[in-house]
């Protein structure tokens, strides 16, 4: 039982990352009907920005000789990095996607791939080839609850992820901006005629998606404190799978599918030999898609699908 619960805890943490990143894919898709394939790399840059901000704050604190508690640095790091990374998202949208908005979807899709490569090389160039060790802002405390080992970091990661997902959900359902986004997702041809600027909405969507990717990046750095410029690639692909699985454009779906993907990966490794983990895990995903080709919450809007 403890064995099972331990895996459940592991899966919750792992799924949080997929869910946070899948949200970014899904939101952009719902507005612009394209997948931003640079999103995995925005996650990576977010982690590096978080690293920079955290290091900067620690240096500042030591220069002015006052002590910032680790948790405060972490909170400030998350907020500042979200802010900074959202500009990266807006920049990517302005440079990479807006000029191609009327171009075939395939062209816009490969733009994302190219921007991704450019971001990787920029980080490689700027940070050097050395691995970066994310600073340990809070000490790890391990709790042993009846044979299940939970760290304070795990609890924090899951809690922060869930609260951001809830905040996003409320934003989209309760605010006027959220309503504009939903309207745009419903019909991006007619809604701009009603006075809602697609440029504003697209920019905002990229900003929010990138800010969430930054949160994922920082939490990733807290859990797995070794950063490298290529860490976003595979991770981005898998989160993309989660976004598809959840139903293209569905926020709720992306969240649930992100967690589901985490659970599938962890529990497959629990039951089968770990060598076959991804083989079996992604065969399961494939099987789900065979029976639910639009994902869990997606709708078959083939008339609008321009890919």
């Amino acid at each position: 039982m403890a064995f099972f619960l331990q895996n459940l805890v592991n899966a919750l943490q792992w799924g949080s990352f997929y869910a946070l990143i899948a949200l970014g894919y899904s939101m952009v898709y719902s507005i612009l009907m394209l997948f931003n394939f640079a999103h995995g790399d925005i996650f990576m840059v977010g982690a590096y920005i978080g690293f920079g901000v955290a290091t900067g704050l620690m240096v500042l604190a030591s220069l002015w000789a006052f002590t910032l508690p680790g948790w405060l640095i972490l909170v400030l790091t998350i907020l500042l990095s979200m802010f900074l990374t959202s500009f990266l998202g807006m920049f990517v949208e302005r440079v990479g996607y807006r000029p191609l908005r009327e171009a075939p979807r395939a062209s816009a899709a490969i733009t994302g791939l190219m921007i991704g490569i450019i971001l990787e090389i920029l980080i490689l160039w700027g940070m050097g080839t050395q691995r970066v060790s994310f600073p340990s802002l809070i000490d790890t405390v391990t709790y042993n609850i009846g044979g299940v080992f939970i760290t304070n970091k795990k609890i924090m990661i899951v809690a922060i992820s869930l609260s951001f997902m809830l905040a996003l959900h409320l934003f989209i359902k309760k605010t006027r901006w959220g309503m504009a986004m939903r309207a745009m997702a419903f019909d991006y041809v007619v809604v701009p005629l009603m006075g809602v600027s697609i440029n504003h909405i697209a920019r905002m969507t990229f900003a929010i998606g990138s800010a969430l990717a930054a949160v994922a990046g920082i939490l990733f750095g807290v859990a797995y404190p070794v950063l490298d410029p290529y860490m976003g690639i595979i991770f981005g692909w898998k989160a993309f799978v989660a976004a598809i699985l959840g139903g293209r454009g569905s926020i709720m779906g992306a969240t649930l599918a992100g967690f589901l993907l985490g659970f599938i990966e962890i529990f497959v490794a629990m039951i089968f030999p770990s060598t076959l983990r991804d083989l079996i895990a992604y065969s399961i995903v494939l099987l789900i898609l065979v029976f639910r080709p639009y994902g869990f919450f997606g709708e078959p809007y083939s008339a609008k699908l321009r890919l």
């Binding site: 064995f3 331990q6 895996n7 592991n10 899966a11 943490q13 792992w14 990733f220 859990a223 797995y224 070794v226 290529y230 860490m231 690639i233 595979i234 990966e265 962890i266 529990f267 490794a269 629990m270 030999p273 770990s274 060598t275 983990r277 991804d278």
Partner: peptide
């Protein structure tokens, strides 16, 4: 326990849980 992963994996929690078990 003879557990494996693939290059670029960052989370080894399921393999390690198996090992501990």
């Amino acid at each position: 326990a003879y557990e494996s992963f693939t290059t670029k994996d960052a989370d080894f929690s399921s393999q390690l849980t198996n090992i501990i078990n």
